[in-house]
Nucleic acid binder design. Structure first.
Length: 275
DNA sequence: TCAAATGTTTGATC
DNA sequence: GGATCAAACATTTG
């Protein structure tokens, strides 16, 4: 369930606790969480004895860099899918169901555990490059964000959801950003006026900034590395609010678009002209 | 009891 | 290319 602000919060927790520490043991409890035959044991073997130099994020993907003298650096890549969690827990605490991996670090009293109920997420060893992902929605310069969207056509929500275009936004933040920008989810982006596109970029940045500040959105399962919930749920204006009045008074509607529940206000976000 | 829905991604299909 | 569906999976909700 983690989107950009939730992953950002998790990455900060990982760096705070683990940056510079030596990994004493890595254990994969559910081999299929590491795709590829034999990759789970390989991952555990490679990380053991390596030092975690730092953790970063691109979009919703986590990159943890591990180094060892006289050996090439490796990157642990983690995607949390829908229900993934990374948690610091004392070794004597019984692991919760659906715990798939555990990592022990030098001079750290708690081990890092990976949980994922639905198992849409994964861990893998790879390079540090960002592959086919577009620019990060938060780290990109505002002008890059604007240019990225200006070159695109297609329905606004579909474009924003596409990680190859812009990385980091998911169902919650797309719906929230479109509402704040006054854009209907089906609005054809290519026909949106520059001023409105500016408003969309501003809305994206404001929503992400606020949510990061509040530690993300805990709608269902999301918690940070300390098990704490995020505070942005109370700031949502449309997501999960179907049937309740928008700030403008109009009842918020929900429909399915691209298989995803899509929330909007018919007054603030008028439907695009059909053609 | 069962169908539908859930914050993701990828690949198939029309 | 665009849009919709299905699948990977488990749990919760109507």
């Amino acid at each position: 369930l983690p989107e950009l602000p939730e992953v950002e919060t998790i990455v900060r927790g990982l760096n705070r606790e683990l940056a510079g520490r030596l990994c004493l043991s890595a254990e994969i409890l559910t081999p299929s969480i590491v795709p590829g035959r034999g990759k789970a044991s390989q991952l555990a073997r490679e990380l053991t004895g390596r030092r975690l130099t730092g953790v970063r994020r691109h979009g919703k993907a986590i990159f943890a860099a591990f180094e060892k003298p006289d050996a090439p650096a490796v990157t642990l890549r983690v995607h949390l899918g829908m229900t993934g969690q990374l948690l610091f827990e004392r070794p004597d605490e019984k692991p919760a169901p659906h715990t798939h991996a555990r990592f022990v670090f030098e001079n750290h009293p708690r081990e890092l555990r990976h949980r994922d109920i639905r198992r849409f997420g994964w861990l893998e060893l790879g390079s540090g490059d960002t592959g086919t992902m577009g620019p990060d929605a938060w780290l990109a310069e505002p002008e890059v964000l604007f240019d990225t969207l200006r070159r695109r056509d297609g329905m606004a929500k579909a474009v924003l959801m596409n990680q190859a275009v812009l990385a980091g936004l998911g169902n919650i933040y797309v719906d929230e950003s479109l509402h704040r920008a006054g854009l209907h989810p089906r609005a054809p982006l290519g026909r949106v006026k520059p001023d409105r596109l500016r408003a969309l970029c501003d809305a994206i940045r404001v929503v992400l900034a606020e949510s990061i500040e509040l530690g993300g959105t805990s709608f269902r399962n999301y918690v940070d590395t300390e098990g704490s919930r995020g505070g942005f749920k109370g700031r949502l204006r449309v997501y999960g609010k179907e049937g309740t009045p928008c700030v403008c008074g109009t009842v918020i509607k929900k429909f399915v678009m691209g298989g995803r529940g899509t929330h909007f206000c018919p007054s603030c976000q008028p439907a695009p002209r059909r053609r």
